[in-house]
C-alpha cells in the first residue's frame, strides 16, 4: 500500500518567488488499485509522483510504500516508471535501451535481448525498429518504447506520467492495453494524465489535485462507485416526452445543448431503470451511455 501523509513541497530558493507545489496532500493507494491523478497544469501532480519515487524530498509529511521509504532499493526493484519527459540515451538503439533497463532492474543479463524484444513487441515495435537509434524515433515511438521500458519485467508498482502524450490513437490503445494488462496481474498503478477518457477507462479511483491540494476523490469502480451521468439520445422531436417521463419517475433529467438528455444515475442498474421508463413511455432510444464525466469535475475545479 502507498501511504502519502500530509505531504508538502515548496520550490524556490531564498530571494526567489517560492511556489508551494504540494500543500498537505494525503492519499492512500491500496495494493492492486489503479489511481488516476488529475488536475490542471501546476496542480502538483508531477511533484507528487516525484515524491512517490523519492526524487524529491518533501518539506513536511511522509511517503511510504509497503512500509518502506520510496527510495528503498527493494521498492525500486518492483517499480516501473515512465516520466512525462523521456530522458533517453539517444545514441542507443531501441533494443539496446530496453536491454539496458532490463539489466538495470536486476534482470538476468543473459535474458536481456529476449526480454527487450518481447517488451517491444507488446507495444508494436518489432524487427528493424529495435535496431534503429532512439534519435531516429518519432514522438509516438518514443512513448511506446517508454511504456515498454516501464512495464519491463512486470513490475508490481507502476508510476506513469502522461504515458499516452503525443501518441496516435493506435498508441493510446497500446498504452491502455499495457496498463490494463498490469492491472490484470494485480499491479498497483498511479497514473498522471490529462486524457480523461483514458483515465476513466483504466482507473479505479481518481484524485483531483488543485493548487497542490486534494480537492476531491472519486471512486470509479468498486463497491461504492461515485454517481455517474448518463447521456441518452432519443428519437427527434421526443426529447420533451423523454424528459417528462424521466422526471415523473424520479430522475433529474436535463436537456443538453447537443440534443441528448443528461441524467445523473447512481449505477448501471439505475441507468437500466431510466431506459425502462423511456420504453414504457414509448420513447425510442437511439443511444445511451454513462460516464463519470471527469470533464465536469474539471469544470467544477474539483469542488464537490
Amino acid at each position: 500500500m502507498i501511504v502519502v501523509s500530509s505531504l508538502s513541497k515548496t520550490y524556490g530558493r531564498l530571494g526567489r518567488r517560492r511556489v508551494r507545489a504540494l500543500d498537505g496532500v494525503s492519499i492512500e493507494v491500496r495494493r492492486g488499485e489503479t489511481v488516476g491523478l488529475i488536475g490542471p497544469n501546476g496542480a502538483g501532480k508531477t511533484t507528487l509522483l516525484s515524491c512517490l519515487l523519492g526524487f524529491l524530498r518533501p518539506d513536511s509529511g511522509s511517503v511510504s510504500i509497503g512500509g518502506l521509504p520510496p527510495d528503498d532499493l527493494a521498492i525500486r526493484a518492483r517499480t516501473g516508471y515512465m516520466p512525462e519527459r523521456l530522458g533517453f540515451d539517444r545514441d542507443l538503439t531501441g533494443g539496446a535501451f530496453l536491454a539496458q533497463h532490463w539489466r538495470l532492474s536486476g534482470g538476468d543479463p543473459r535474458e536481456a535481448g529476449r526480454r527487450a524484444a518481447a517488451a517491444a513487441a507488446r507495444v508494436g515495435l518489432e524487427g528493424g525498429v529495435l535496431l534503429r537509434k532512439l534519435s531516429g524515433y518519432s514522438r509516438g515511438m518514443l512513448q511506446r518504447i517508454g511504456i515498454a521500458q516501464a512495464t519491463l519485467g512486470d513490475p508490481q508498482l507502476l508510476f506513469l506520467d502522461e504515458p499516452a502524450s503525443g501518441t496516435d490513437p493506435g498508441g493510446v490503445v497500446i498504452v491502455r492495453d499495457r496498463i490494463l494488462e498490469a492491472k490484470g496481474r494485480g499491479a498497483t498503478i498511479v497514473l498522471n494524465s490529462h486524457q480523461l477518457p483514458e483515465v476513466e477507462k483504466v482507473c479505479d479511483r481518481v484524485v483531483f489535485l488543485s493548487g497542490g491540494r486534494v480537492a476531491e476523490e472519486q471512486t470509479l469502480r468498486g463497491e461504492r462507485p461515485a454517481p455517474r451521468r448518463a447521456s441518452i439520445r432519443v428519437a427527434p422531436g421526443r426529447a420533451a416526452d423523454a424528459v417528462a417521463a424521466l422526471a415523473s419517475a424520479g430522475f433529474a433529467p436535463e436537456s443538453g445543448s447537443d440534443g441528448a438528455i443528461r441524467v445523473p444515475v447512481a449505477s448501471d442498474e439505475n441507468l437500466a431503470q431510466a431506459l425502462q421508463t423511456l420504453a414504457r413511455a414509448d420513447v425510442p432510444v437511439f443511444e445511451a451511455r454513462s460516464s463519470m464525466d471527469l470533464e465536469d469535475l474539471f469544470r467544477r475545479g474539483g469542488t464537490a
Binding site: F55, L73, T79, P83, L86, S105, G106
Partner: peptide
Amino acid sequence: GGTIQMILARPIA
C-alpha cells in the same frame, strides 16, 4: 537530459 530519473527509478543506489 532527464536520464537520471529513469536510471534512479531502478534499483540503483
